[in-house]
Design a protein around this nucleic acid. Sequence first.
DNA 1: AATTTAGTTTAGAGGAATTCTAAACTATTG
DNA 2: CAATAGTTTAGAATTCCTCTAAACTAAATT
Lengths: 139, 139
Amino acid sequence: MDRPYCHILDRLKTVGLRPTRQRLALAKLLFDGGKRHVTAEQLHNEALGQGVRVSLATVYNTLHQFTDANFLREIIVDAGRSYFDTNTTDHHHFFFEDTRELLDIAKDDLSFANLPKPPKGTDVKCVDVIIRVENSHNS
Amino acid sequence: MDRPYCHILDRLKTVGLRPTRQRLALAKLLFDGGKRHVTAEQLHNEALGQGVRVSLATVYNTLHQFTDANFLREIIVDAGRSYFDTNTTDHHHFFFEDTRELLDIAKDDLSFANLPKPPKGTDVKCVDVIIRVENSHNS
DNA sequence: AATTTAGTTTAGAGGAATTCTAAACTATTG
DNA sequence: CAATAGTTTAGAATTCCTCTAAACTAAATT
């Protein structure tokens, strides 16, 4: 699922995306240096901070293209803000309501005793578990 | 958890909300006639459709006040759109990605074999499971 | 029942995140 | 190296939601 940066060119090629300067730079930010959860704006700021000239529109385009290509997974936890997870393997999340940060839950740390069958005529696309936590001292 | 409409006045009183025309009308739409999942806009349209004059701002205010009072539960499944569930008991959801509709999963139909402990210094606020489904014929 | 008060509603402005548009740009193809 | 087809971009537009301050109304006080 995750491969080092040197493979990004290949990965882009296999899904038919041209290796543009912007996509390569964003891919490097995303996939080099471990698993990450980012918002579009975070990634955009990070790119600008490193002198990568890229527009916010392109960051959005790229995040969606990478999600479609299964390089990323979109996590919906926060009304009005999308997170993208570089870990596309089957796993779930803690969400810190205080800091609005995500933390992966390892696959083995959460399992179901039973799961309902999907309603007739539908297929399960994915099962998302969000454990919402807050700092102990809160209220 | 849910009580018939005739108790709405009492419920409002216990949480210190005045029984205004708008709140009573919205409460009636929400709590009469079974469990529901609504967005602010849906509820607003429904109210207008029934000749209830109420502004969208008031619908939002009311939904949040009812959520704070535990008459409703907010469900985050869809980027940039909040759903409110009149069922505030412990349960989870199917989400139909095609129609953007929610369906309750009965408490007994889903259970965990193991759940991770929250990170140090945090308490679990809630555990949300969303089973995302799509029509079988899709792709 | 009139007056005061404090909570409520509202239209419209404002804001945040995201998408759209159409022109300029660039990687690939022939 | 020109043609083409995919890409990027600034800025406008859109969507969902919140804020503001004035008008309104329920409840408390006289």
